[in-house]
């Protein structure tokens, strides 16, 4: 016997919502999903009228859904925002080409302007070239840092007021777990924040409107709405350690679906004891980006790549940063430490 939608009781239910377990028909599901995002945006006051908002678009399901929903809500509730798509080309042959095609199609489908920034333009290095120099062990470090800055720089070029990314509830929960497992207090404190404010030059405020949306629901939404997206893993396989946290999270969700929200809730209520050492935010003396060291991560990594010292950004060599800044030569021993790279 077909089950009735538990919300409107008129149409037949087509799915069970992973977040709540309720059986819903298509339109009630769409409405619930979109409405929750609307409530998230409104209660956290993520946007102001008249702002230009850059959506970090990768062609993947999260950013596609984000772009679609923002467009819908912007019109439905008259947010008065100017939306545009911002995409980053990391220069990974095969993987990136396909996803960029998807983003270009999104531009057509949602009728939103699109800008693409590439690592090549910004830094002079593609990920393919980086991997050749650096190997597969720490390449994610480079990519992660470079992408963050790339989005900011692209946004600055277009005079964007805010950036929003497609981080979903699963991502935030996973990050909380990772930070606890790695003992990263500073990040633990920040990672559940729905929006980060800018301190100092060069960082555009960014927010995560999908913070409370379950990944499963995003997939279902995209499927039922027949949204176009590209779903393959990066060819340079991601950090194996994060995979452990991911598996754990999925298992928790299987035992108790509210676990994802519970983890986020826990993260939001954690606070750091007084007297615990936290890094202080300053600015990079070379490019002005915000940084807790004299040189920002990006500059350090780039310097390493350009000098053929690929290990320069990996691990802690803060004392050497001063040397680099003042163009001093490194001793032979220091060079040797920074060169050796295991593939």
């Amino acid at each position: 016997m077909p089950i009735q939608c538990s919300s409107c009781a008129k149409k037949r239910a087509v799915l069970r919502r992973p977040k709540t377990g309720y059986s819903l028909c298509k339109s009630c599901f769409f409405w619930a999903f979109e409405e929750e995002i609307h409530q998230t945006i409104v209660s956290a006051q993520l946007f102001n009228r008249g702002e230009t908002v850059g959506i970090g678009a990768s062609g993947g399901k999260d950013s596609t859904v984000l772009a679609h929903v923002l467009k819908v809500l912007n019109e439905r509730y008259d947010y008065g925002l100017k939306l545009l798509l911002l995409s980053v080309d990391e220069g990974i042959t095969g993987y990136r080409d396909d996803s960029l095609e998807t983003v270009k199609r999104n531009q057509q489908q949602y009728d939103l302007p699109l800008t693409i920034v590439s690592y090549e333009e910004l830094y002079g290095w593609t990920m393919d070239a980086i991997v050749k120099q650096v190997g597969l062990k720490n390449n994610c470090t480079f990519c992660g840092v470079f992408r963050r800055q790339a989005l900011d720089r692209g946004a600055m070029m277009l005079n964007v007021d805010k950036i929003c990314t497609g981080h979903n509830a699963d991502d935030v929960a996973e990050t909380v777990l990772m930070n606890v497992l790695r003992g990263d207090i500073a990040r633990l404190h920040r990672c559940t924040a729905i929006s980060t404010t800018s301190d100092g030059e060069g960082a555009i405020p960014r927010c995560k409107p999908l913070k409370y949306a379950y990944e499963k629901e995003i997939v279902l939404y995209a499927y039922f709405k027949k949204l176009d997206y590209f779903s393959t893993e990066c060819v340079y396989s991601p950090n194996a350690y994060r995979g452990h946290a991911r598996t754990f999270l999925k298992d928790l969700e299987a035992v108790r679906p509210s676990a994802i929200m519970d983890i986020i809730h826990s993260g939001e209520n954690l606070s750091v004891k007084e007297g615990v050492k936290m890094p202080v935010q300053g600015t990079c003396s070379r490019c002005g980006y915000i940084s807790s060291q004299a040189l920002c991560k990006s500059c350090v990594l780039l310097e390493g790549l350009n000098r053929g010292l690929p290990k320069l950004g990996i691990g802690k060599h803060h004392r050497l940063h001063d040397k680099i800044l003042t163009q001093q030569a490194l001793t032979q021993q220091e060079e040797k430490k920074l060169k050796a790279m295991d593939f």
Binding site: G56, S58, G59, G60, D62, S63, V88, S99, N138, C140, T141, C143, G144, V145, R147, R148, H167, D171, T175, M178, R182, D184, R187, C234, P238, N239, Y241, R242, I314, G315, K316
Partner: peptide, 13 residues
Amino acid sequence: MCQVDEEYNSPLE
């Protein structure tokens, strides 16, 4: 896009 935002410095033992 790969959601790996920032990586962790210290290598895992």
